[in-house]
Structures are given as C-alpha cells and as structure tokens.
C-alpha cells in the first residue's frame, strides 16, 4: 500500500493539522536533514509551472534526496501519444515518489491507480492542487489560529481552483467566508451548497471595502484577462478589486493579505512594505510544507 496526496478533500482535520505541525517543526530546523538520503523524486510536469516544480525540488534536496525530471515534454514519449498510465508505470520504476502536474482533471487520481510508488498531485487542470492549499493554511496558522476566523476570498472565484480547495479545507475550521468577485466569476452554486452543508457560513459582498474592517485574512486571487471581452472592461473590473494601502487603513491590525502568486495588478506594490503583506512568506512556506508532504509519503 502506498500513500498518495491527491486532493485536499481526502484529508480530515486531524491529518491536515498533523502535516502542518510537521511543516512547523521542519521550519524550525528540527528535522533530519538526511531523512530522504538516496531517495529519488520524479517530477512529471505535463504543463509548465516552474515555481511549483522548483519548490518540490528544493524540498527534496533539503531532505537529502534527489529529483529527476523530463527535460521537455516535446522531447519525450508523452508527446508521442503514450498514455499517462504507461508513463506512470515506467517512471514508477525509476523513482521513490512521483509529483505530477497535468492539464486534465483527475490525472493525478489516475496516476495513483497505476503507480507502484506514492503520487503527489501538483495540480490537475481545473481540479485539485493540495500543496497550495496546505501552504495557504500553514501561512494563516503562522499568524493566527484557524478556528473561527473571518476570511475574505477575492477575485475569480468561479474558475480559481486555489479558492475552491482553500474554501473546502477552511470548512473544517468553522471559518466564516466572505466572497467578493466580479459578476460571472462568483463561487459555483454547487460549491456554495456543498460548503453550506458542511456548516460554513458564506456571505457575498459587492466590494472589499464593505468588509475590510471585519476580516482576519484577505485572500486575493488573480482575475484573468481572458475572462473579459476587452482590456477596458478588464481594467474597470480589476481596479475595483485592487488592494491598496488606503483600503487597508481601516483593516484590523493583525489582518494578513495572501495571494498564490504570480500577481498582476491585484495588489498595489506599496502594500508589500506593510506588515500585513504575507504573500512572499506564503510562497516561501511552500518548501517546508512540501518537505512535510514528501516525508509523509516516502518514508
């Protein structure tokens, strides 16, 4: 039996807490730096995501392990029409774990079915990306307890998988969710129902300034230009959702601002200097969180 990390929905609260506790110990340098000596991680990225990949490779290296990867997708058999199932069976023979990113939803679940080593999902299409959610939770937990906080989710909440997975996970912590999104990019109704059934309170707002005084976390996601007919309407919309120092004047002192990065115009660069800005910290936290994930699956 191998253990895989495919979807945040496979985790219960106890499992998430345990993983985040391990990440915290790692962050405090209380870990065995040779824990994964001699182990090999295969990173299979069927679509580019340089940072996620670097973050996993850095995590593996910090634990004494090695990473291998395909040079470019074009150069390998994946581009020649080989099934993912076959690729996974072959790569299972080379490595002690596989990290996969793939454009199709459910690809990681399929990979887990065919792999003889553990599989970690690093994003499958519009589907799941559990390491992002775990590092988001970890970053919030560095500043405050997760239980009962007020969290504002801003941006493209319809297509943004980061927002969906995070909302799902937060429903385990009695978080009150405030949503702010352009027309047409609201949270999908099915997800609202699902979260409601888990007891989550969700309140929709027109503008972030309506709620900025009350929230503990402001989680900003990217609004993609492709979602709008022209750049003028894109600019109109995004300017209404922008986080600025002026907006934050009325925010709680301890409130934090998160963003999965890369950002475009969603956050004014002047915000970077405020102690509330935690998005670079968040990105850095990807390494200890992924180290905890790798230790969990490989040992």
């Amino acid at each position: 039996m191998t253990r895989h990390i495919i979807s945040i929905k496979d985790f219960d609260r106890r499992q998430i807490d345990r993983l985040l506790d391990n990440a915290k110990r790692i962050d405090a340098q209380k870990y065995d730096k040779t824990a994964l000596n001699g182990k090999i991680l295969a990173t299979l990225f069927f679509e580019p995501s340089t940072r996620t990949r670097m973050s996993f490779e850095a995590a593996m290296a910090r634990l004494g392990g090695t990473s291998i990867s395909v040079g470019s997708v074009e150069a390998c058999s994946m581009a020649k029409g080989e099934t993912l199932a076959d690729t996974i069976r072959v790569v299972s023979g080379y490595a002690d774990a596989i990290v996969i990113r793939h454009p199709k939803e459910g690809a990681a679940r399929l990979a887990a079915q065919f792999a003889s080593v553990p599989v970690i999902n690093a994003g499958d299409g519009a589907g799941q990306h559990p390491s992002q959610t775990l590092l988001d939770l970890y970053t919030i937990r560095q500043s405050m307890k997760l239980d009962g906080i007020n969290l504002a989710l801003i941006g493209d909440l319809r297509y943004g998988r980061t927002a969906h997975s995070l909302a799902s996970a937060l429903s385990l912590y009695h978080v009150k969710l405030h949503t702010i999104s352009p027309t047409g990019l609201e949270l999908p109704p099915a997800l609202i129902t699902e979260l409601g059934e888990k007891g989550m309170e969700i309140i929709d707002h027109d503008e972030i300034k309506d709620i900025v005084k009350e929230v503990d976390v402001i989680y900003v996601t990217r609004i993609q230009r492709e979602r709008f007919p022209d750049s003028a309407s894109y600019f109109n919309v995004t300017s209404n959702y922008r986080i600025t120092p002026e907006l934050l004047e009325s925010a709680k002192k301890h409130a934090i601002i998160l963003h999965p990065l890369p950002r475009v115009d969603e956050i004014d660069p002047r915000v970077d200097r405020l102690p509330n800005a935690k998005y670079f910290e968040q990105s850095k936290n990807g390494v200890p969180v992924r180290m905890a994930m790798l230790m969990q699956v490989i040992q």
């Binding site: 099934t83 993912l84 793939h102 199709k104 939803e105 679940r109 399929l110 499958d124 299409g125």
Partner: peptide, 13 residues
Amino acid sequence: PNPGCISNTNEPI
C-alpha cells in the same frame, strides 16, 4: 460530462 476529465481520454480505464 466534464470534457476536461482524464476519464474522457484514451487512458486504459
């Protein structure tokens, strides 16, 4: 029904 689902490809499942 999800066109982006891996089960709608030529995988042996």
